[in-house]
Design a protein around this nucleic acid. Sequence first.
RNA 1: AGGGAAGUAGCUCAAUCGGCAGAGCAGGCGCCUUUGGAGCGCAAGGUUAAAGGUUCGAGUCCUUUCUUCCCUGCCA
Length: 573
Amino acid sequence: MTEGKNNRNFITEIIDDHNENGRFQGKVHTRFPPEPNGYLHIGHAKSICLNFGIAEQYGGLCNLRFDDTNPAKEEQEYIDAITEDLRWLGYDWGERLYFASDYFDELYEMAVELIRIGRAYVDELNTDEIREYRGTLTEPGRESPYRHRSIEENLALFEKMRAGGFKEGEAVLRAKIDMTHGNINMRDPVMYRILDAAHPRTGDKWKIYPMYDFAHGQSDSIEGITHSICTLEYEDHRPLYDWYLDNIEIFHPQQIEFARLNLSHTVLSKRKLIRLVREGQVRGWDDPRMPTISGLRRRGYTPEAIREFCEDIGVGKVKGVVALHKLEYHLRQHLNKTADRVMAVINPLKVVIENYPDDRVEKMEAVNNPEDETAGTRSVPFSKVLYIERDDFMEEPPRKFFRLAPGREVRLRYAYFITCTDVIKDATGEIVELRCRYDPATRGGSAPDGRRVKSTLHWVSAPHAIQAEARLYDSLFTVEHPDSDRDRDFTDFINPDSLRVVDPIYVEPHLRNAQAGDRFQFERLAYFVVDQDSTAEKLVFNRTVTLRDQWRKAQKKARRAPRKRRRKSAKPR
RNA sequence: AGGGAAGUAGCUCAAUCGGCAGAGCAGGCGCCUUUGGAGCGCAAGGUUAAAGGUUCGAGUCCUUUCUUCCCUGCCA
């Protein structure tokens, strides 16, 4: 799907420059470097598509590298989940699966080298003191009293750190740069700290762990990464990235920063996603309302839709918020081409065809996917008693309501024209059944006399329908920017109706053998995916995204319009 | 004594290193239709943050200003 792609953006411009001036001999090698401390979300997808996409576009390679330099936060569970999500998205890193922890020995040697050339020292200030000595955004910092120890002493002390001679917090290794630098990252940044935690991969071999800044650039360098693409908040780190590489004198990749994705109607910060899970606002990381890759997958999103979305939004340095409907647009776009159609009734209204023989059952041929001839057809049973959607009938239809009403004729999809002859209500006045008559000449859905109907309804045969559970999802938040309100917590904006369970719904028998992960369009309603909670006895469907609904839109507009008119007429003439 | 970055249509991005400011999505209006889906078409949408300068010509180069965002973890 990405073949022949030729995206142009500020990053390809930089790469083109490099290719012209020969900086990397025309080579392009990128990497996707997640920290295994949480689940991947749609924001990561942008970075993934970017890194793998750029490599592909230039005939280069993209590595997967776990940035596992902080064992206090990282777990194998996340490594597994991230790997699975990447595979599902359709990316392949070949044999190039790496871990920053693979380089701990080399990194240690590099640190020793910096000590040897007098550019690093062991500091025994405590955390608070280091912060105090660092200065502020507008005031310069002060040098640590330990800054001018001899090289020999630093070497010995660093070895002591490695050997476990210090406790957590008692000593750090720092780069000797400039305590008065305007960029705070350059005020003698910490290179190594002591962490008393077992590492998922290196176990308890190490007592000291490199900081991100000391690990990332060198890891890039070791792997021969040419273009190290990261998000905007690392702009301030680039001088340090460059400093380490220049002072260690190793291969020097180019760090490039882009604006991370923000999506409306959701939150994408790890901290907030964790809260949603911990506070029970959702059922877990893969809850279909979550913006995580696993959540989107369970919701019924396709990898293709996510990738198309990432292509579409492009890449720049402007922080913005992409509208959720853009993601949904690409989802519908792909599902429309690939999802088989099926008929299902979510809110049933019983219909009895008075002039249809009691015991008769007909097999109606239905097209599985009008967008894809190879999807073929199926047969749908039709009988005297049916369910239609309650919303498809109105006893007193307003203007522009084209569906069924007393005395009105409509088409039942793939079946007959029917006309409503009677409305049956219960004691409370609620409509419980419709009596209709069908025209036998209209079998298949068209009238020999050429008469037309304004609408086509979906339906299921009551005696043949399968009962299933539907989970109707809506957006998790009621506002566009749940986390941009300074006075209110983002959880205040959680949509109380983000999940509505309807049980039972009635689906056509064709669905009997549907498997978890199968996607369908319930005609005229929405796309659905079979959830993993389904059992042999009962199917569970997650509503992925609704179809665009002109009638609902028209209703909304109609509700707005009178107000407008009133306002106008209130004006003095 | 602060450093870094970004401002082009409602949103996301373009504009071939100075040459008629364009696209997708959203919104509007039509056409078509055995899904009120899909599809197709039309119109609308802009003082390129602002001011000044250079130039035959500036979104693009220079100067100043304004606005927004990021940075004071032994997180990444």
